[in-house]
């Protein structure tokens, strides 16, 4: 089912934020990755690693003032970064859709949920409101909203958090996009609701063949969902691999450290091995590895030479002194 031609190819994406009175800040620093049709790709990292900015840059949703975006974002052969604002708006929702973290603030509070679904259908498929209504109800049913013919008239505040996130997914799926970007879609939800939403996403990806970029800080979410995982640190990809080899044999000390610092539900109370320091301790990438000060096994080279992302056998790694022992 998966073809080898990438659906989305991000090349050397760099996003720089201008800051008043300070030097500009490179939030995303030369990120490259590909998404094939039907594939689920994870972008994993902690706050400030650039994962959300990457997704906003792909969607062309970053505020233009003061920010510079460079590199290429090829979607089926078109560089999205070169599209005009109007062309990009046409693509959003039709070809690429996004699901955000906070479903309440992403929905318009004064418009019924059903109308918010039909609006997308009206805009991108040229349907009338009347014709779109049953389609919208179908979409709501498909994402597991009970009694959709009645709920379609509900306002967002009349729904629970889980239902809102389902509604948001329905809006995203309205035009059968070929790529869905989910930015921490379950972070604001409870675990049992998170499990429902993740199961729904998995099912939708299988049924519709849409590709999914899953952005999350939760390695557990990634472990069950993603075909390929990109680990980001300080605006750069530090490691990439298919999920099984990546979790079984993490090579980058950061990936390894993350896995060691999460308490596992199925493991008996061993002491955790935290990563020391915080993102504030990072070095600039210019002539060092940003992670070096927090690294468990730094060598001299780490603070002198910028490591490059080296690819081999479907894995990619940016490290001078990788972890050798599998977990």
């Amino acid at each position: 089912m998966m073809s080898d031609a990438p659906l989305l190819s991000v090349e050397d994406l760099t996003v720089t934020f201008g800051r008043r009175g300070q030097e500009p800040f490179r939030a995303v620093d030369g990120v490259s990755f590909q998404v094939r049709p039907g594939q689920t790709v994870g972008l994993v990292g902690e706050s400030g690693c650039g994962k959300s900015v990457t997704s906003l840059a792909i969607m062309g949703l970053l505020p233009q003032r003061g920010n510079t975006v460079s590199g290429r974002v090829d979607f089926e052969g078109t560089n999205l970064l070169e599209l005009s604002t109007d062309d990009m708006r046409d693509r959003r929702g039709r070809d690429i859709a996004m699901v955000f973290q906070d479903p309440l603030s992403s929905l318009n509070p004064v418009v019924p949920v059903g109308v918010q679904v039909t609006e997308v259908l009206e805009r991108h498929r040229g349907m009338t409101r009347k014709a779109a209504m049953p389609v919208a109800a179908d979409l709501l049913r498909r994402v597991g909203i009970p009694d959709p013919d009645r709920r379609i008239k509900d306002y967002p505040h009349q729904m629970s958090g889980g239902m809102r996130q389902r509604a948001l997914i329905a809006i995203a799926l309205a035009c059968a996009p070929r790529l869905l970007i989910a930015d921490e879609p379950t972070t604001a939800l409870d675990v049992t609701i998170q499990a429902q939403i993740l199961a729904l996403l998995k099912e939708l990806v299988e049924d519709t063949g849409t590709a999914l970029i899953m952005i999350t800080h939760d390695l557990g979410v990634v472990a069950g969902l993603c075909d390929e995982v990109n680990v980001l640190y300080g605006g750069r990809i530090v490691e990439r691999g298919a999920r099984h080899p990546l979790f079984r044999d993490p090579r980058h000390p950061y990936t390894n450290g993350l896995l060691g610092s999460i308490p596992r539900l199925d493991a008996v109370g061993e002491r955790l091995t935290p990563i020391p320091g915080s993102v504030a301790d990072n070095l600039p990438w210019d002539h060092a590895c940003a992670f070096a000060p927090r690294c468990s096994q730094p060598i001299e080279r780490c603070t002198q030479v910028t490591p490059v992302l080296e690819e081999s056998f479907g894995r990619a790694l940016r490290c001078h002194n990788p972890v050798e022992v599998p977990r």
Partner: peptide, 8 residues
């Protein structure tokens, strides 16, 4: 130096 656990 490498940082203390709590960071610098």
């Amino acid at each position: 130096t490498s940082v203390a656990e709590s960071g610098t």
